[in-house]
Design a protein around this nucleic acid. Structure first.
Lengths: 182, 182
DNA sequence: GAACTCTATGTTAGTGACTAACATCAACGG
DNA sequence: CCGTTGATGTTAGTCACTAACATAGAGTTC
């Protein structure tokens, strides 16, 4: 028997479908909360901001781990590249509907896109730290990570906006192949 | 005799120095407006958002132009790289105090950083269009531009946070040199 | 010079995201 | 059975931002 949905899940599902139907700007937190059967304060106890229902990235730590596990003899660029490709390929088609919906809504609205970038900043810090710990200079680490995430983000947007069926992993690999090799 | 400051300039100067002194979050639009001797409505007639006092990038069009002027036999990556380096070198030390202050405040606060990224999205679109017009595929254009701007942004942040005197142009060049060559 | 327009500004009264302080209520362990 | 704990509700705020309407001063035209 499926476990009863948590308030968190109910809020997220409700919010996403309202956003898809009416547009992000035309849905208030109040509406989300009452449609999910709670008060608006409960919403904010589960999500710090209205944005965060859409923008939250559970893959950050996975990516950071994958990068730090790459062999040290590779260049920083190459390690980030391979780490990103590994994770995005592994996620593969297992990305669930909620995630897909979140990304699609996220790229469609400037405010949310900005929030995604901000979130990306966290990933950036994580990855850069991983590289720095393994002896890379801070400058090179930040630059390489910035570039790779910039490319990956472009691939993500492309994937969200285009239904041609090519998987996210393949797109990210293609994207990163435009950057320098070993 | 210097021309009298416009309301716009007065608002911007006032806002920036208040932000530097008290922190972005601890200054209300109301305070900025009254310190500049106007009402809060006047503030919003000159700046669409509180963010926008800090985040505005007059260099976008310059960069786009520089990129589209690169010789076509170069790869997309190389054209964006050279365009960015040209402009940032040309700006050189002529960046005025207001701009420097804006960037320093901008990178220091998550909300503003996100707004800078959003703004970056505009640059991204501009550059990508320039490449697409000259025959590049949309995917490659977006990826390459995303990567280069990601790297450049890292250099910008580095420059804003570090007073060692190395110019922005040099840092951006160093950053982009980590990416692939011809 | 009076009427007329244009532009910059002020006033007022909202909406909506988000916070703080405090109350309630049900579950659960002792 | 009582006390604690955790999730929730209520209320009353602050602040960014908007809409509608008023005003005032600098020309411009007749």
């Amino acid at each position: 028997m499926p476990r009863a949905k948590t308030t968190y899940d109910r809020l997220q599902d409700t919010a996403l479908s309202l956003f898809e139907e009416y547009g992000y700007d035309n849905v208030t937190v109040e509406q989300i909360a009452s449609a999910a059967g709670v008060s608006h304060m409960t919403f904010f106890r589960h999500f710090p901001t209205k944005d965060s229902v859409v923008v939250s990235d559970p893959y950050d730590p996975l990516i950071a781990e994958a990068v730090s596990l790459q062999p040290q003899y590779l260049s920083a660029l190459e390690r980030v590249r391979r780490g990103l490709i590994e994770v995005s390929t592994a996620m593969g088609d297992s990305i669930d509907g909620t995630t897909r919906s979140r990304i699609r809504i996220g790229v469609s609205h400037p405010k949310l896109r900005a929030a995604m970038w901000e979130n990306n900043g966290v990933t950036e810090d994580l990855l850069a730290s991983a590289l720095i710990e393994s002896g890379e200079s801070e400058f090179e680490a930040r630059v390489v990570v910035g570039a790779c995430l910039g490319a990956a983000m472009a691939a993500l947007v492309d994937w969200a906006e285009d239904d041609s069926g090519q998987s996210l992993g393949v797109r990210i690999k293609r994207a990163l192949d435009f950057l320098g090799w070993e």
